[in-house]
Design a protein around this nucleic acid. Structure first.
Lengths: 151, 151
DNA sequence: CTCATCTCAGTCAGACTGACATTC
DNA sequence: CGAATGTCAGTCGGACTGAGATGA
């Protein structure tokens, strides 16, 4: 027998911004993952493709910094993208420690496919909020994140 | 050579609430984890102790529902709490499938210890926001989360 | 029989650490 | 020399799945 009282969330958790953040992020992550799965992608793939499409070819280290992904995880994600022909890895002639990563036309297509699915996710996620509230939320999160990056 | 341009975040990511959420949640998670580590605890431990302190003894299934933790993970977390004497597991005489979980005085102390550390974390996390903005953020996240739970 | 509960054995993506060889 | 890069191997907490045994 499952009653409503079984689902009462402790006040300590409800009142803690850190808990609210991780819970909503978990929910958002579920939605995002479902959307990506249909395209055979993961979060890291999308972030890397987005960085390549916007700023052009870059080294793996730079990609990691732009996307907030660890160096070592960039390696694995790019392996997968390269296997699917969405990026190309070539040695940097000007610095032989580096690889130059380039997005391919197939990568561009994949990026656009994911873009559409992702837009739908944001809408599902923010369904209870009005447009100005969505912008408020985005603004507040951005400021918290900015502050975190600078410290 | 690491320039500022290396850290420019793709617009697609910056504009996606789902990305902002997971990034800020990751940062919050780091802060929380550091704070808990000093007390030898993890997030799940705190959530379970909070539920027990606020609503009293309960079965594992109910605890899972209240804290948003999967039944199977509740098992492991309670094992750890029981080993440290912070909770007691005893069979429910009225329903022999269930265990009744009770918080101990040691568990209460641990909960209070973590409470203090956690308050400091929220302050660090929300440092860039004024008081009314913090409440805005909390309110918006709560509504998004409520909507998620109901669907 | 159906359903809930507890438990165990896994998987999975994401975040992170430490090490190493190579190159700047 | 110290520092950056790419790679590999591994850890960790959190979220989740599937199955099994027990009992309401």
């Amino acid at each position: 027998m499952e009653t409503a009282a079984d689902h009462r969330v402790p006040a300590r958790l409800r009142a803690a911004p850190s808990w609210l953040l991780t819970q909503t992020a978990t929910h958002a992550g579920r939605l995002v993952q479902e959307a990506f799965a249909a395209a055979g992608a993961r979060r890291y793939h999308y972030a890397l493709l987005a960085a390549l499409a916007e700023f052009g070819a870059a080294s793996q280290a730079v990609l990691g910094r732009r996307c907030g992904i660890d160096r070592s995880d960039v390696v694995a994600a790019l392996n997968e993208l390269a296997e699917r022909g969405e990026v190309v890895r070539s040695p940097d002639p000007t610095d032989r420690r580096r690889n130059v990563i380039t997005i391919t036309p197939e990568g561009q297509r994949q990026l656009r496919r994911i873009d559409e699915r992702l837009a739908a996710v944001q809408d599902t996620l923010l369904a209870p909020l009005a447009e100005d509230e969505r912008q408020q939320l985005t603004g507040l999160l951005t400021r918290v994140l900015e502050h975190a990056r600078r410290s």
